[in-house]
Design a protein around this nucleic acid. Structure first.
Lengths: 108, 108
DNA sequence: AGTTATACCTAGCAATACTAGGCTTAAAAC
DNA sequence: GTTTTAAGCCTAGTATTGCTAGGTATAACT
């Protein structure tokens, strides 16, 4: 799958993956791989800058957590703005996808 | 709709829009607007460079046509490689869209 | 004569996902 | 006990790409 396809949709993927359960970056990568049915296997160099971007935009908040075993993790959760943005981006995706479907004649 | 969403999908849109009927740039813009149900209204600065890119990649061929009325037009048609690429990109889109659907939980 | 619609083009911009590297710590293997 | 592997985070730089803003030319309409 082309690398450019994801552009403009990664934020929605991240917001939806985090959802209600706070997750750290590494776990987000695995969750995306699992929930996408193996479609997406995103590298760290994609995820971490995107998380920082979303936090800077006020859609995510992060805190450092020291688990019993293992090293410190940075855990991300949706803010109120993040939840709202997720709703908008879901609608935006459906609009976009139906437009592409119409043009490609795939699912029309 | 965000401007970044289209990235990576425009080529498929162009190839599918041209399809079997040779079209010129301006008509392609109108065809995309019509067939997408108004979802996409793409500016010329998006279309023309993309057409050049696809021709350079060997997926499109162009010829200049002088119609009875009106000014000269550059008419694009799919090459064999373009037709093959369209098939692949359609499949790529479906794979991508189903991955996003799974993660967003929209159409799953 | 002037405006509008048709029709093409390009330079530069902004955004973004990825590559390729580096750093640290805990667990597992040898 | 030392080395290796996996977990976990990070960033600089790159390539691609769609868009903005501008320009040019011709035909039709007012």
């Amino acid at each position: 799958m082309s690398a450019e396809m994801l552009k403009g949709h990664l934020d929605a993927v991240l917001l939806a993956t985090i959802g209600d359960e706070a997750l750290h970056g590494y776990a987000i990568i695995e969750a995306i791989r699992a929930r996408s049915g193996g479609h997406f296997d995103l590298p760290e160099g994609t995820i971490y800058p995107a998380l920082h971007r979303l936090e800077l935009a006020g859609l995510l908040s992060s805190r450092w957590v020291q688990p019993d075993g293992g090293r410190k993790r940075r855990v991300y959760a949706l803010t109120d703005g993040g939840r709202q943005s997720l709703v908008e981006r879901r609608a935006g995706w459906q609009s976009f996808a139906s437009g592409i479907d119409l043009v490609l004649g795939s699912r029309a």
